[in-house]
Simulated scan of single mutants.
Amino acid sequence: MRTPIVFIDGDQGTTGLQIHARLQGRTDLQLLTLPEAERKHPQRRSDAINSADIALLCLPDDAAREAVSAIRNPALRVIDASSAHRTTPGWVYGLPELDERQAERIALAKRVSNPGCYPTGAIALLRPLVQAGLLPADYPLSIHAMSGYSGGGRAAVERHEQPGAQRAPTLQMYGLELAHKHVPEIQLHAGLAARPVFLPGYAAYRQGIVLSIPLQLRLLPGQIRAEHLQACLEQHYQGARHVTVAPLHQQGPASPLDPEALNDSNDLRLSVYANPEHGQVLLTAVFDNLGKGASGAAVQNLELMLAALQAQG
């Protein structure tokens, strides 16, 4: 079998640079990128994407749609890291841990949409609980997440790391109009019937996310306790390579969550914190917004596709 050609379109952005670095030196694939002078040339980009076996799109949404519209090669497989196709019918959602067959679907798909950083944590926490009937699909959910400033892309990185960075905000909440573009993605792939409230923010550290979702046990069906939620998550992610579920915490002081704890990895750590006295639970996720939240997830999906190509000979 010949060495597969992998084209990164947009390899100078935050996600593209990380993917390029993760793939550098690989001998089981041929990495294709365009010289700087050709990156915005429509014909050069079209020729490159159509010459590849797998294309990784690390582009703004409109540019990603334009790249897909230029595809002529029927055998080409695409992993889109933008948010352009995350709720588009016919595209496979690129979260291998979504269910027991999702990794296989990704491996064989022609079109895969990489999850957003925040939705990765939210969906990983919510979908198993909704599917198991422990969390009503119409529960009035509130999701809060704090990311490192790299989540704001190249412009945000420059504000914090270029001269004059001392003027960059230490903390900023955004999405206050309650219309963040990640909300439809979370609602669809978590299996929610009601739109959640989502409030994200950036802080003055480079990368890493802490995401939290509070629950009131009195609003859950039956006599559900934190132990049931914990057991559901543990069962769902049993054997998952990149997702771990921390032990249930419901007694004594809890250690603070460090958003940078899993930086430079493709790992995701889920936790359940409970206060039985007050009937309250907090679901949390910690992961790297540039890892499992972006480039690490894209490379994980690429690995599944490459394995499928190799199996097909």
Rank of each mutant, 00 (worst) to 15 (best):
Gln30Ile: 07
Asp11Trp: 00
Gln12Val: 06
His41Thr: 09
Arg39Asn: 02
Glu36Tyr: 00
Thr27Gln: 11
Pro42Leu: 03
Arg2His: 11
Thr33Ala: 04
Gln24Met: 10
Pro4Leu: 00
Leu23Trp: 12
Ala21Trp: 04
Glu36Val: 02
Glu38Gln: 10
Ile5Trp: 08
Phe7Arg: 10
Pro4Arg: 12
Leu32Ala: 10
Asp28Phe: 14
Lys40Val: 05
Phe7His: 12
Ile8Leu: 10
Gly13Cys: 05
Arg22Val: 11
Gln12Asn: 05
Leu34Met: 04
Gln18Asn: 14
Asp9His: 06
Gly13His: 00
Leu29Gly: 08
Gly10Ile: 01
Gln43Val: 10
Thr33Pro: 12
His41Arg: 14
Ile19Gly: 03
Ile5Glu: 08
Gln12Cys: 02
Pro42Cys: 02
Leu34Ser: 02
His20Gln: 07
Thr27Lys: 15
Thr14Phe: 05
Gly13Gln: 12
Arg22Ile: 06
Gln24Val: 09
His20Lys: 09
Leu17Ala: 11
Pro35His: 02
Ala21Pro: 06
Leu17Thr: 15
Pro4Thr: 06
Leu23Thr: 01
Ala37Asp: 15
Gly16Phe: 00
Asp28Pro: 12
Gln43Trp: 12
Lys40Glu: 13
Ile8Trp: 04
Gly25Leu: 08
Thr15Gln: 00
Gln30Thr: 06
Ile5Val: 08
Gln30Val: 02
Asp9Met: 05
Thr15Phe: 00
Thr14Tyr: 13
Thr14Glu: 06
Leu34Pro: 00
Arg22Ser: 12
Glu36Lys: 14
Thr33Gly: 06
Gly10Ala: 02
Val6Gln: 04
Lys40Gly: 07
Thr33Asp: 09
Gln43Ser: 15
Phe7Leu: 08
Asp28Arg: 11
Gln43Asn: 05
His41Trp: 05
Leu32Lys: 12
Leu29Tyr: 11
Gln24Ile: 04
Asp28Gln: 09
Ala21Phe: 01
Ile5Leu: 09
Ile19Val: 03
Arg26Asn: 08
Glu36Phe: 01
Ala37Ile: 07
Pro4Cys: 07
Thr27Met: 14
Val6Asn: 04
Thr27Leu: 13
Leu31Ser: 15
Gly25Pro: 10
Gln43Thr: 15
Gly10Gln: 02
Gln24His: 05
His41Leu: 03
Val6Ser: 01
Asp9Thr: 11
Asp11Asn: 07
Arg2Trp: 14
Leu31Asn: 15
Gln24Lys: 11
Ile8Thr: 13
Glu36Gln: 05
Thr15His: 01
Ile19Gln: 05
Gln30Glu: 05
Phe7Lys: 07
Asp11Tyr: 00
Arg44Lys: 10
Leu32Asp: 09
His41Glu: 15
Arg26Ile: 03
Ala37Tyr: 07
Arg2Ile: 14
Asp28Ala: 15
Asp11Ala: 00
Leu32Asn: 11
Leu17Gln: 14
Ile8His: 10
Glu36Met: 10
Leu23Pro: 13
Arg39Lys: 09
Ile19Met: 01
Gly16His: 03
Ala37Ser: 11
Leu23Arg: 14
Gly16Arg: 05
Arg44Cys: 03
Leu17Lys: 15
Ile5Met: 09
Ile5Lys: 15
Gly16Trp: 01
Thr15Trp: 00
Arg26Phe: 04
Gly10Cys: 04
